[in-house]
Amino acid sequence: MNETPTGTDAMIVATGLRKTYDDFTAVDGIDFTVTRGESFGLLGPNGAGKSTTMRMIACTSQRTGGTLEILGRDTDHHGPWIRAHLGVVPQQDNLDRELTVTENLYIYGRYFGLGKKFINAKVEELLEFAQLTEKRDAKVDSLSGGMKRRLTIARALINEPEILMLDEPTTGLDPQARHILWDRLFRLKEMGVTLIITTHYMDEAEQLCDRLVVMDKGKFMAEGTPAGLIQQHCSREVIEVRFGSERNAEVADQIRDLAVRLEILPDRILMYTDDGERDLARMVERGLHPITSLVRRSSLEDVFLRLTGRSLVD
């Protein structure tokens, strides 16, 4: 099964990977290894360098520096060979709207040099997998956003890829469609397909990724399992209290000692603590009665915002 010359199960090995355009550095020296069957997530705000990293892995963008090996081969010299073994789900669907669902799958299989017989059998399997059997002869134009997305994923599986790359797989989908997609992706993961996922949905990362990195300005800010990252960069719980936008700042000084860390936002105060209920009770004992209060577990989103900041990056 394993044909990587190093004898390990390393599917992707990057060291000091860099990509610069004229005067802009998109990826600024990142190191990572992805092993077989792993589900690896790249998180980061827009412009963090996620898509550029994905393009370099998919061998459609040449690196400026560092090394990048996929399935044991250098991406600069073995692009077509590497791509023949990958599945790519781009950020924006690029299905052929003039062809039907089945034709889209068929023609894509041909790009890998697959035979008619193999493709036809595979198409049936994938139609079922993507829950598109009833739409098999429909033109792509008539499909909903979720269906198109599932078709794009099915298409990327036609060659039974060793690594499936998903660039923001569920952006723009409604909750039902997202959950169906997650279920499909989870099945692939169970089958041992290595997944590389970029997303800015934290729940998606928590659902799908064994390990993830938070990327910002072309660099890795943190790396670990979803739970590990929360533990490492955040307290166990968060109390969100609102005293009204005028009073928040004034109250903050009186409760600073209760929290491990305090974040004052225009509309609310976030208190990072280890025991939310206890500290909320202490606050009330001091005669401070917030308009609304909420105690919750820390999430990946807290980690993400802490590491990449709250300002808008568009």
């Binding site: 023949a84 990958l86 890998f112 040099g113 399997e125 997998f129 060659n159 039974e160 993961k189 089958m191």
Partner: peptide, 19 residues
Amino acid sequence: TVVSEQSRTWQGALKVVDS
């Protein structure tokens, strides 16, 4: 990882694709 029911035929691109 454990191979599930549906994936009996999944062989992986290294075997499926004549590169």
